[in-house]
């Protein structure tokens, strides 16, 4: 077990379904926190509503499990009032990009010094698998029974455009890379956004021909292309495979940031 000092032992096992990637992402985040040497009394986890947002409830620190979509606004209040705290936000694709989209772009613009980990499972998991703003076109969900017809958001690119100082994307398969990226984000003053694409076997995989948990994770792994490689492929005119997405560090910069402890 990773970071045993950081888990609320009395609440495990957690409510996540068998093979849900959220547990993996909690592991990676806590491994990064340990690497940072943060103290539990000075670290605050904040989240909205969704399966992903249940994460802070399993961590032995002060934490705010808030309302759907508003985690970043709550976290902004915490961090601006106490810049000496380390603030980490857990959120989901629906929480962050649908109902919380406005807070997302403004938190990136303000560049408030915190780390945001989004568990993007392409779906509203907690409510039973309805299409979200990241459901890939064509994918089946309970509200897109004939295949999603809306274009999807690229969350990491959105964070880059909105001004976050650190942006990376990995998957629940890439545990070591994801941990490193979260730690790098924590070290970067300003808002660090890490998109972790992950599996919701219960409400996404089942309906999209990915029947087993390993099959879903294998799908994530095989569709991830390193940013560098992707850029090379584009430059060389190599066609990008259907459903592929970039992984790696998308940006690391030092735009003016807020709530940085002086």
């Amino acid at each position: 077990m990773i970071a045993p000092d950081w888990f609320r032992d009395d609440r495990l096992p957690h409510i996540y379904c068998t093979g849900c990637g959220n547990g993996t992402i909690i592991n990676c985040t806590l491994a990064a926190v340990e690497e940072m040497g943060w103290k539990r009394d000075e670290t605050i986890f904040v989240s909205g509503i969704g399966c992903s947002s249940r994460a802070p409830g399993y961590i032995l620190t002060d934490s705010l499990h808030t309302t759907h979509g508003r985690a970043l606004a709550f976290a902004t209040g915490v961090k601006m009032a106490r810049p000496d705290f380390n603030v980490v936000v857990f959120t989901g694709d629906g929480d962050l990009a649908a109902i919380g989209g406005n807070h997302f772009i403004h938190a990136c613009r303000r560049n408030v010094d915190m780390t945001v980990v989004c568990m993007n499972n392409y779906i509203y998991g907690m409510t039973g698998g309805q299409g979200s703003p990241t459901t890939p076109p064509g994918a089946i969900s309970s509200t897109t029974p004939y295949g999603a017809s809306e274009p999807a958001f690229d969350l990491a690119e959105l964070a880059v455009a909105a001004g976050a100082n650190y942006v990376a994307r990995w998957t629940s398969y890439h545990v070591k890379e994801l941990t490193k990226a979260i730690a790098a984000g924590m070290q970067t003053p300003g808002l660090a956004f890490v998109e972790a694409r992950t599996q919701c076997p219960t409400n996404y995989g089942r309906h999209n021909k990915l029947r087993t948990v390993p099959a879903m994770v294998e799908h994530l792994r095989s569709h991830a292309i390193l940013v560098r490689k992707y850029e090379r492929m584009v430059a060389e005119g190599v066609p990008i495979p259907e459903g592929a997405f970039t992984v790696g560090e998308l940006v690391r910069r030092s735009r003016p940031a807020m709530g940085v402890q002086r």
Binding site: T24, N27, T179
Partner: peptide, 13 residues
Amino acid sequence: GVCHMICPDQAIS
């Protein structure tokens, strides 16, 4: 340690 990192249920040690 990859197994215990990916184990979503904190079951490996």
